[in-house]
Design a protein around this nucleic acid. Sequence first.
DNA 1: AGCATCCATGCACTCAGTGCATCGCTCCTT
DNA 2: AAGGAGCGATGCACTGAGTGCATGGATGCT
Lengths: 303, 303
Amino acid sequence: MELDQLRYFLQVAQRQNFTRAAEDLAISQPALSRSIQKLEEELGQPVFERKTRSVALTEAGTLLQARAQQVLTILEDTKAEITDDGQSGRVRVGAIPTIAPYFLPEVLRQFADAFPKATLIVQENTTDVLLRSCTQGEIDLAILALPVPAKYLEVEELFEEELLLVLPPEHPLVARERIRISDVEPYPFVLLDEAHCLSDNIASFCRQRSFQPVAVERTSQLAMVQELVSLSHGVSMIPAMARQLDQSDRRVYRSFTGKKPTRTVAVAWNPYRFQCRLLIAFRERLRRQRAAAGGTGSASAKA
Amino acid sequence: MELDQLRYFLQVAQRQNFTRAAEDLAISQPALSRSIQKLEEELGQPVFERKTRSVALTEAGTLLQARAQQVLTILEDTKAEITDDGQSGRVRVGAIPTIAPYFLPEVLRQFADAFPKATLIVQENTTDVLLRSCTQGEIDLAILALPVPAKYLEVEELFEEELLLVLPPEHPLVARERIRISDVEPYPFVLLDEAHCLSDNIASFCRQRSFQPVAVERTSQLAMVQELVSLSHGVSMIPAMARQLDQSDRRVYRSFTGKKPTRTVAVAWNPYRFQCRLLIAFRERLRRQRAAAGGTGSASAKA
DNA sequence: AGCATCCATGCACTCAGTGCATCGCTCCTT
DNA sequence: AAGGAGCGATGCACTGAGTGCATGGATGCT
């Protein structure tokens, strides 16, 4: 049994397809086939069930997948731990799409300046994918919004951030001095796909006020939501950090009067993995950024 | 990093010597040197400190040793778990020298009959070595006498066994109807090396009766103790199971009157490792043997 | 029926890992 | 002080495991 075999195996298991996995691994498909064959020969039974259009893990394969993952993570962490000089290394950050472009760039810039030898890798994905990646050691930490449904992960809250009402310029509510959450109930919403946790945050906040926002349209990007609001397709709620970067005058942001809707931004990581000094430094920077981001966010909301 | 490199590394770490390790691994010394060099190159620092007469682990090496051990054990167990058919496989048994030749052969014979496809490997060693081997996954279970000073190991008592007094035929105590433990205090003892736990068992038992046995001679084998007793070098105490196999009439065995000295035979194993069906079957056989061995032991003691 | 997709197999090649011979260093012995 | 033994490192040549290319064989889609 060789480590390459295990890496190959894991890729095939993930892709459920030899050809694609071979491409990912930058080897030829025959080489991959033979490598897996050899592994199966050694184990005395197949790890994949070859179906006509794809492959599936056998029982043995499922067991091997967990252990192979574990072994490779241990070795990777060991290597990191030994070579940890606090300066060079790799930090793989995951963030949800409604945070990434608004919060990360400044942190990344500062971090890259402070640690020029470090390699930063950013992955943008939905909460569930990020948490799985974090658990499996594919990323080192994830920046997302509460709630975080994950056992075995350490979660630290960074800051609470206001969700602002965004309106088309000609919307009747624009003229209002004070807007309460109940005031928006009659108006249709533009929301993100259900995969995005921001939709959950908004729905959850509305539910507390006993109404369900009616989505007339669902998009996959926050920028698209903003554009659709400008075109009067509906109203929406946008995190303060996204409002910061919005230079357009084709929409208007308003802070709610009374109890304001918020989301809490947090960082999650796998405490069972080795935490190199670079990682600890990165989390420290996230905490420092917290004050800044949270502060600006609120300030802007009041403006 | 390759698994072979880790295996090589562990062997060198254990032997503290490249040449010997190479012999163990059945590769040439240059090949081993280069393999380690490559490993060190990948880690960016040496794992061994080359001293003139031997090599020692560096800090990085110490860390790597633990992880490499862990990884190889996981993989070995995974393989065992996948290929576990309850019939074939390998069982590595360790036993202390004062149990091995008297208790194991019958168990091994029965087990080999019941599981002809299984491979049995027996290692005879002192308690501390066996426990370390068990923890590190070098053996699957260890048969020894209580107490077992090991955290992280599961211990199951098998049976309690009487320690018999063994005397030269012309010894004054031979004529006695009843011999109490205090009666042997004046006589010099022939004992095993201090490395053997039987010496501890005997010393501990005597200490409870407020005396320290005086050893005139120390040997490394129980058979040698028996022979020296025959030659009137002293008296000794011998486990009942060893008396069973002793056909000689050049020494006499006596059971103590009153509280009899005993030792408790137990089996220990590493519960964090995969327990293949063969292993479970082996332990089951040990338990069954318990009745037989314990029974015969006591019966003989009374005779 | 024809085509696309997917994994397995035949064949030739390359280079990483190995063994042999030897070097260089240190320590021990006389 | 000199010679020898022990130990790891290095030069060099070789071999075979792993790889890529081309292709086969099976299945499903249109």
